[in-house]
Amino acid sequence: MKIAVCIRRVPDTTAKITIAGGGTAIDPAGVKFVINPYDEFAVEAAIALKEAAGAGETVTIALGDDSVQETIRTTLAMGIDRAVHLQGTGSADGLATARVLADHLRGGGYDLILFGKLAVDDYGQQVGPMVAELLELPCATAITALEVADGSATVEREIEGGTEVATCPLPAVLTCDKGLNTPRLPGLKGIMAAKKKPLEVVPVEAAAGQATIVSLALPPERPAGRIVGEGAAAVPALIEALTSEAKVL
């Protein structure tokens, strides 16, 4: 089985966000960048599937500038076999980004193409399913369980008020949600081995697309609240505030 994992480099979720001068992007100064947390579920799924099968190949694919190579090596250290760095910048339009990925993936002979369900920077949540459409492949998004057998995948995905169970033949595109697995930490031997694994660099160019970022701004601060009191004795005051001020009861 040949599995592609498409990953993204994002600011650490604990990072404090400040807006850069142009007002359309964050200021990356002092921000630590890591692999997108949801992509780790995809990486773990790929490695575990290959381990279970005892054969196959896992490939990390990442679009970005050269800094993404460090993130790629995180996946190689976890156990991915090799990587492709699509060297260039993505577009604000997810479809333009998806086209670059689809062009590369097409004809790659992949049985599975895995994504995280979203990237915790722009929350685009679209490149994975768009790649599926462009490649005319089956797609399930935000999966929390996966079984692969006899050339087909059975997945579960959480929907409002239930769990959807679906099947599709391979090849397929899946986006991975928390709950699918527990990603392994890259071990020290893995970190050393990652340097020696193949990392192919392919220059690409994404079209501008039809989405334009107008601005990026910090959300308005919540007005200061108040402590209504201490212990159970404060309950009546809270009820009064919820009833007459907030009007939510």
């Binding site: 339009d93 997810g94 479809l95 998806a98 929350y123 685009g124 949540q125 679209q126 490149v127 994975g128 399913p129 768009m130 599926a132 459409e133 462009l134 797609c139 399930a140 998004t141 935000a142 995905r157 959480e158 929907i159 409002e160 959807e164 697309g209 039809q210 989405a211």
Partner: peptide, 23 residues
């Protein structure tokens, strides 16, 4: 922007060549 809606929107966008805004 439910599980279902978020599953559909990007695919429709890709199918018709349109930009997609989520959430």
């Amino acid at each position: 922007a439910t599980a279902t809606g978020k599953d559909l929107a990007p695919r429709i966008a890709a199918r018709i060549g349109a930009p997609c805004g989520m959430d």
